[in-house]
Amino acid sequence: MWTSRRRTRAALVVAALSLTALTAACGGADTAKTAAGAAGGKGGGAVLKIKDPGNSGPLAVAKKEGILEKRLAEVGATVQWGGSYASFTATVDAVRSGSINVLEGAISPVLGYLVSGKDIKIFAFTDPVTDPAAPQTDGLVVKPDSPITSVKDLVGKQVAVNKGGRGEYLLLLALQEAGIPADQVKRVYLNPDQGASAFATGKVDAWWAIVRAYPEAVAKGARVVVHGRDLKDQDLNMQAARTELLTEHPEVVRVYLKVLQELTAEAQKNPEKFQNVFLDQGPTAVSGPRLTDEIARTRYAKVPRFATAADGAFVTDVAGIFQKYGVLPTAVNPNDVIFDLKPAA
């Protein structure tokens, strides 16, 4: 009894000491965080929280030159640049937790989120690039020696797409237009970076490469069967924001869109400035033919515009495809999704 009581006491003392140290450490961290929070929200103005813009594009230039900071200060708001996210799912998690309140992307990936949550709304769209001289931005790619030459040849084959995103939407759309039941083609769900590996090593027969993956795949010799532009692609690029930001501070979001519009217009004239914004070297830098390609793409990029009620058709069309093939459980009401930010003239 005596020994065990002593031993318990020893343990308790050790426990108490360590706990005190830990509490002190945590307390310190909390205080620091509160102080930082107070500084960030100074003036009670709105804070735009944007994810890391990377090394190219209008937002990267805005971050580098402090354009948003300056313009937002005029309406009493601030901007907070966040980190980057490995996948769209992770980005959505960040939006849900409020760490990001403005995001851009295609309609398709946010639909899954919009079905279950009403806390973000689309306030701007970018019309699709239709100029035939503009470089393509996506495509169904196969190996150069693949027997697949048209969408019809996909029957019984494995195609890598990103789940619930643009890749899956375009594949389903292509199959629908070719009159092939979707269940005759095996969809393999892979994120773009995983898709790249699976495609390079021949683990899938075809891959719908989107965004950065597409020029990368073409540069490595892949053959393109069909482009998104060849289809009736309704999956526009859009800008969305958290609903409370849009309802409480619409003028702030308008300033953000204005800046974005101005910078995109500038990028059309001077695309070189919008590549390798921060770094000329390293993993995010592009060079050689890839740089030429990016410059051409930037030259043809469209300027984002305010979303209107008529744009509901795009949302309905994309959601319709997803719902038809069971990607989305229910329909999406466009009125719940689009926010009319346009100032009354």
Binding site: Y85, A86, A90, D193, P283
Partner: peptide, 24 residues
Amino acid sequence: EQIGATEGIGYLVTLAQQYYRTDY
């Protein structure tokens, strides 16, 4: 560091994947 990071060696893995750089 896959989530909300702008630096770090875990972030470097994410970058290498996102930009398809096998060397990185």
